[in-house]
Amino acid sequence: MIDSIRETAGRWLGDGTIDAFVGFRRREDGSVVPTRIRKAADARRLVFGDGCVHNLMSYVDLGGEEKIGLLLKGCDGRALVQLMIEGEIERERVKVLGVVCPGLSSDGVLEPKCEACRVNAPPVYDELVATDGVEPWEREPSLDDVAAIESKPHPDRAAHFASEFDRCVRCYACRDVCPLCYCEECVTEKARPQWVEETIKPSSNFYWHLIRAYHLAGRCVECGECDRSCPVGVPLKVLNRKMAREVESMFGYVPGVDPEATPVLLEFKEDEEHLLCPGGVT
């Protein structure tokens, strides 16, 4: 598998198909990190396997001109497709080397982000690298985390989230690592009006996590990078997963699957009055 990754990346760089290739390399201490290479000779350093958890779509300069080769897992591939849906990147700008992801582990335990995986191969690719014994699949993972919240009465839900958000240090790693959080000016940086207070306190932390979840509703591809990068373990993914299920049940839309789709809040149907019920007062 790794041989075909190195061969393909080297070939694309060598014949000028791409200007740079984004993949993974191993450091001397054994850890695996994302890497961007520009020379065909460097392709021999590429690796894939446990530790390659990062969503490499976060490393693509959306406004850039360079032609980029990408090693994409299922989750990364969905991020690419959602960015295409939103008009943020042209399919022609990227060459995709897809991998049929076996699921990644850390110390023998499957990564939480892989537990929540819905599709293990990217929806679009130019070449696909097979993994021994792993077929491409789609599945509906357990929603126990969402159900656990929904089993609580409302005041307990608010108390639960308030105590979780209380730890947040507002480093915005969740935002910066997210391949779909690409606004040039984030609402947290706006002052007129200042919707989200910068001060770390219960109400402003709560606000930040609400607006983050809302802004990703119908867009989040559930790669779990927000959860993975949070230094204080705020359960971010559960909010995104909840909203993803709502969008799917309301509109039949799953982000990052069909490149021809229209973003879910940029269209409507006239006969959607059921969206207001139950709960509508009339």
Binding site: I149, E150, H154, P155, D156, R157, A158, A159, H160, F161, F206, L210, A213, Y214, A217, G218, L239, K242, M243, E246, V247, M250, F251, V264, L265, F268, E272, E273, L275, L276, G279
Partner: peptide, 15 residues
């Protein structure tokens, strides 16, 4: 209508 449905779902979820 679409936006409100999602705002309401989210706020409902958090309490």
């Amino acid at each position: 209508r679409r936006r409100f449905a999602l705002m309401k779902s989210l706020l409902d979820f958090v309490g």
